[in-house]
Design a protein around this nucleic acid. Structure first.
Lengths: 361, 361
DNA sequence: ACGCGGAATGCACACGTTACCCATACAGGG
DNA sequence: CCCTGTATGGGTAACGTGTGCATTCCGCGT
């Protein structure tokens, strides 16, 4: 009785002696093989893609697998295949707040290709090294980061041969693959629109000092203004938040006569500026102060604000990011490419200009 | 030469014959063992927690590991340990939009316990079965879902012995573990505040039909109104979006005289109602129409709105969720517990009542 | 009749780690 | 000097799957 199925290399694990009728937590391919009367290899082949297996056996195995509620362990599979179908996603507080949907967009695209996301949420300004080392330990096939990574972390990924694509972010020193909105060009486009009508005293409300995106946007605004022969009256750095914009406006705008213009590095701060004008300073928008932002978040289109801003094509950016990463993983593309996506101007009601007919609200 | 290190069971993988100086992509514990002159078992022990290893050897091994940039493969470790330190997170569009930060809060708590998140973004109303089966194939230790799961999916998790905790969501039929804001009690509290002053004609703007949370909130509002002897003039179902609230308001509020009150099932719709009143219907808030919401999203506190609403303690809810899950994974708690967290009333400027001194804005 | 080729399947091993069981060294007490 | 207990390290068997190679089986051509 004990020697009946002695030939199978499977150790005693199942219904030999142990508990009474204790179903194993997760059925293995051996269980399916035993139930369907084939070898474990055949079960494995049934669950691979282009493996040669007769139709009749495939049906048998699939029936047994369904009966046992079996699906192959991706952990064990990854160990031998050297691919996990896991994409590491690095997100962080501010980048997630600007576009809460990017994770959903990226997730949709990633899952479309049969992969899953291993998400690591970085603390506000912590070390990225430990987190990167940790997700590399999970053998992710690639990494998408919407947070800035230090050079040591990028080098670690390169050493482990794990491709990285930066989302809406560029690395100043390192030559990293990235899909990025054209922040400079977008700001120049925005400034061109703003200076078409008398802009008055111009104030720039930039992002935090450490933010490369903020630097790009500030740079675009400066170059656009310079091209129009305008020098900004003030340039300050905000923290990308609504409250930060509101408080900055209070110090920047009060005590000046005549028309003014505020260009904020993102929408959240721009909306804070608007509310500061209306509720704290008693200024009208856009008659006294014209305000513009960058991002085109959902709130920018709300009737209370109707903010003139620059729209980032986030859905197309997400698709391009995932495609670039899959090409890097498959080896059909070389790393280091920077893909700039053109943003679109959204002229609404906070800038002093006619709204052209046919412009989306 | 070839038989010198014949005794090591390691197959020829390293610097025997192959390419010239080709460093392997990922160093293994064998590489570290060879470099530090110990056995592979010892390397493994160094990287486990409470393993007995002499201090001198530990230093040697750690130095070699650092030189090779080695860290143990969590894939291989999981295969033998039967624990992946992976938490499956199920999110979906609307639940993510209401609180973009919950993923960061939950992620912070999860990472605090040394685990990582495997995130699956569900399509708007797709089958949850396939997605659940897929993340179970990754051997996640537990699952947190902020989306509604059908009973088949929950049964699949139970079958695989993977505990599930629902975040801010209850399952009507299934006895599932959950951490949930007290939607009913919160709404009753809100209604008690609203009827303290003459409410006039009361309209209820509920969530989508399929949303259990929306049902709870609607139920709480109804019971609160009934307790005050008020029957709502209209009850309609919205889609949780700003635009949905705005359009619903247009149909609901126009053509009625006297004071009105709108209770929305979430803040986004409430804000849409406010803008519809002010910009589409020419009604004043709160003089003509009092508006209240639920969630206390960031925009509710903005000066343009100052929405009276119910605050959910999301940070504490996230902490409780992760703690409950870890207890279930460790076996120190039984499944099926429902933990109701008390919300807080935030009285602002869209309801017709005095703002008590000391109330947070 | 016999061999042969191709399709289908079984066998054994490898992936990189942890768990378990011993072997060894060393100290101390009799 | 021997025996024993303890601390430490080595060897080996899993974990559950994919895959190269051998083997079987069936059909068919000469």
């Amino acid at each position: 009785m004990a020697s009946q199925s002695e030939r199978t290399p499977r150790p005693n694990h199942g219904e030999d002696a142990a508990g009474p009728e204790r179903r194993p937590a997760r059925p293995t391919s051996y269980d399916v093989a035993q139930l369907s009367g084939v070898s474990q290899s055949t079960v494995s082949r049934v669950f691979r893609d282009g493996a040669p297996v007769a139709k009749s056996t495939r049906r048998k195995v699939e029936a047994a697998a369904r009966a046992l509620n079996y699906s192959p362990s991706r952990i064990a599979r990854s160990l031998i295949t050297q691919r996990t179908n896991l994409v590491g996603m690095v997100i962080t507080d501010p980048s997630n707040r600007a576009h809460p949907d990017i994770l959903l967009h990226l997730g949709h695209e990633i899952q479309e290709t049969g992969n899953r996301m291993l998400v690591v949420a970085l603390p506000r300004d912590g070390e990225t090294g430990q987190a990167l080392r940790d997700i590399l330990a999970y053998h992710v096939d690639g990494i998408i980061s919407s947070a800035s990574l230090d050079d040591a972390s990028l080098e670690m990924c390169a050493l482990a041969r794990v491709p990285v694509v930066l989302f809406n972010r560029t690395q100043p020193e390192w030559q990293a693959s990235a899909v990025c909105c054209d922040h400079v060009g977008g700001m120049e486009m925005l400034v061109r629109h703003l200076v078409a009508t008398p802009a008055g005293r111009v104030t720039l409300l930039g992002g935090p000092q450490w933010s490369p995106v903020g630097r790009d946007r500030l740079h675009g605004a400066m170059s656009g203004l310079a091209r129009a022969g305008i020098t900004p009256a003030a340039v300050v750095h905000g923290d990308y938040t609504f409250e930060g914009g509101r408080q900055a406006a209070t110090g920047l705008l009060s005590g000046h006569d005549g028309p003014q213009t505020v260009i904020a590095a993102n929408d959240a701060m721009a909306l804070g500026v608007i509310d500061a004008c209306r509720f704290d300073l008693g200024l009208r928008v856009p008659e006294d102060v014209a305000v513009a932002g960058f991002d085109d978040i959902a709130q920018a289109a709300w009737p209370s604000y109707r903010l003139t801003t620059v729209h980032q094509p986030v859905r197309r950016m997400a698709a391009a990011t995932v495609r670039m990463l899959t090409e890097l993983v498959d080896g059909t593309a070389e790393p280091g490419e920077l893909r700039l996506m053109p943003p679109e101007l959204r002229i609404r009601a906070t800038s002093r200009a006619m709204v052209p007919a046919g412009q989306p609200a």
